[in-house]
Design a protein around this nucleic acid. Structure first.
Length: 225
DNA sequence: ATGGTCAACCAGTAGT
DNA sequence: ACTACTGGTTGACCAT
């Protein structure tokens, strides 16, 4: 086991697996081995002391850490490898493990966790993006609602709307907005039926206002639900 | 004390 | 059946 202090004063420790170099008890299958498991009996000392060539005793007398921490160099190499390919074939895994003085299983686990972290990061970014989008849509919706209220409250006389069916002016009082889909409908005008119409606002100022918000679809071009 | 990070594990699943 | 992978979880360690 090797203990060192990194530049950021965090404790860096590397711990090689028991029996990697010389132990005859090295498991035949890496899947059988719990990496954190401390071998019992006579093997315990080997587990604690087995390690890299530059292994040294802990100077502060603290008990040895049980959790493997990859060294900066190991992490760097793994990251570099991950940039090239996000998963390894057995040959690559073996080679990388040899290079890093780790077991192939450890390299494999590192890649699994790295993929998971990568995916998590991606998901978080997407979540952030959707939140911002939701916020902007909410704001846009609020503006449009306010605008509708203002238009309804206009005291300059009822705006005139041209019916696309009869090509004649309709009183604005016949216009209603569907509360569900917020589309404009006319009620009780064209032959007494409730009907969605493509309306043309006679007042050009109002028409411009209706169609200019944030690239949102213009009110008069919406289809009813 | 507590929350974050990360190596390691386990269960489930898909491909062969 | 075996292998490789994912998602979820655990536990050690660290920073605050």
């Amino acid at each position: 086991m090797a203990v060192s202090r990194s530049s950021s004063s965090s404790l860096e420790l590397t711990m090689s697996m028991p029996g990697f170099v010389s132990s005859p008890s090295f498991p035949s299958s890496v899947k059988d081995l719990d990496i954190n498991q401390v071998p019992s009996g006579a093997e315990e000392e080997e587990w604690i002391s087995a390690g890299m060539e530059d292994e040294e005793e802990s100077t502060d007398g603290a008990p040895p850490r049980k959790k493997l921490r990859l060294s900066k160099e190991q992490s760097r190499l793994l990251e570099e490898s991950f940039r090239q390919h996000h998963s390894l074939n057995p040959r690559q895994k073996e080679a990388l493990a040899l290079q890093l003085k780790l077991r192939p299983r450890q390299v494999e686990v590192w890649f699994q966790n790295r993929r998971a972290r990568s995916k998590l990061k991606q998901t978080e970014m997407e979540c952030e993006y959707l939140k911002r989008w939701f916020g902007s849509l909410t704001e846009q919706n609020r503006r449009l609602q306010r605008e509708v209220e203002e238009l309804r409250a206009l005291k300059v006389g009822p705006p005139t709307v041209i019916s696309p069916h009869s090509c004649e002016p309709l009183p604005a009082s016949t216009l209603t907005m569907c509360p569900r889909c917020e589309r404009v409908t006319t009620t009780g005008v064209d032959k007494g039926s409730t009907k969605t119409t493509r309306t043309a606002v006679a007042n050009p100022t109002i028409a411009a206002t209706l169609s200019s918000e944030n690239g949102a679809p213009a009110l008069q071009s919406r289809q009813s639900c």
